[in-house]
Design a protein around this nucleic acid. Structure first.
Lengths: 239, 239
DNA sequence: GTCGTTATCGTGGTATACCATATATGAACG
DNA sequence: CGTTCATATATGGTATACCACGATAACGAC
């Protein structure tokens, strides 16, 4: 069955207003959040995966009318997660290799700017926290628990961006992360990349601590551009 | 009267299907484009300007129902152009000074990445075209025709971004430009800034021609960050 | 006259009925 | 058996009616 639909139904059954929290969010926003999470949790690059969504089906699954569903889908379409083809259907989009590389490059641009801003504005204590993200990998090599390392990896980049303090960059990056995350899972699996990645991260942290603006920026940019180059070479399965 | 509404009406009267071109665009997309242009052409930082939109009013002005209007407004809201307050109204957003600076910083990050990519991928002839953008300013100083120079200025930055070849960056930048344009008008009015700006541009062009990746990137970033610093100092009228 | 209460209304949110048309289906004809 | 055309159906797009709720104004009590 369609995993998205089932997830959606499960979440919907949570609506009984047990405590009636200050749930002032509109149905459109709820549907938007739900669908976005569902899409993010779907392995859209699995060739088996069904990528078609059905408005009417979502209607019954969520227990709301088409209107908020359609508005939510409009937003997701604008963000590049889905595409609606008139009289054909609504489809989750698989990003092409080129698009994926462009997204990573854009990520590099934004995160390196965030690193620059972090050297200028972030507090000592905030920067210090970065090191703790990798405490658990001090003794054993990351190859032994790649799943956790992948999470810590994402957490590191997210943290650097947060350190920059630019809400605009933080927001713009969130969607990029969702798009790139699916592919990142596959690329980090090479353990040598994970090892080199840790070295890069430590150098970035040092640059941030030394408040070396240019260096932190450059290292951050290069680290992410390396990922783009890696995807370019090894991800032929992308369109 | 509300300038947006009047503009909207004028444009609407152009819909008679004289030749019935392949106008396959949905009413939602038409409304979206129309409203976006209308907002872009409005001087939202004029304290006199009415910033409230009325769904029902737009309905009659455009001659369509609320549905496509609302979907278009949803998109504009997500892009940060408007904000809808339940039971209060829909308002065009004035960006705060902080937000404006963050947008310019983001612009700097993206354009400098585009410059980097341009040194690696753009053709000689494409880069050569950049010089022609300023041909008309060779003899007379830009202070004599600031309006035209402002246009050429925007054209230059847009061209650099296009040279980068990343559709993702091109798209992300379009909205930023709309947001920043209103403020740019006011800041470029100092003629000394215009003169220095031209010098910067020429240096960027030279770096691109020499395929000096790092230099082109750095100059482009710094040029735009200078604008951010300038806005920070001189645009106290922003929230 | 001021404060509080109530009624009305304006507004965005939602549900639903309707529409247009590309695609699919199948029957009829060659 | 294959091709073609007519009909049916599914799907996204649009219009509209209804709803909930807060704001505001009108009114009344003190």
């Amino acid at each position: 069955m369609n995993s998205i639909v089932t997830l959606v139904q499960r979440t919907t059954s949570a609506t009984p207003l047990a405590l009636a929290p200050l749930n002032a969010t509109s149905l459109r926003d709820q549907a938007y959040a739900l669908l976005k999470n569902a899409i993010a949790d779907t392995d859209i690059y699995d060739p088996q995966q069904e990528l078609r969504l059905d408005e009417r089906q979502l209607t019954t699954a969520l227990g709301v009318s088409r209107t908020p569903i359609r508005e939510a889908l409009s937003l997701l379409e604008q963000e590049g997660f889905i595409r609606t083809v008139p009289r054909r259907g609504i489809y989750i989009i698989r990003k092409s290799k080129r698009e994926m590389i462009e997204m990573i490059q854009m990520w590099a641009a934004l995160e390196s700017m965030a690193a620059r801003l972090a050297t200028l504005n972030a507090s000592e204590t905030e920067i210090a926290k970065l090191r703790h993200l990798f405490d658990e990998f001090q003794n054993s090599p990351p190859s032994e628990h790649l799943g956790e390392y992948s999470d810590a990896n994402i957490a590191f980049h997210t943290a650097v961006i947060a350190l920059g303090g630019s809400q605009m960059i933080i927001d713009a990056t969130k969607n990029l992360l969702l798009h790139v995350r699916a592919i990142r899972r596959a690329t980090i699996t090479q353990s040598d990349r994970a090892a080199r990645s840790i070295v890069d991260h430590l150098k970035i942290i040092e640059a941030l601590e030394k408040r070396d603006t240019e260096l932190a920026e450059r290292l951050t940019r290069q680290h992410t551009l390396d990922l783009a180059a890696h995807v370019d070479k090894h991800c032929g399965f992308l369109g």
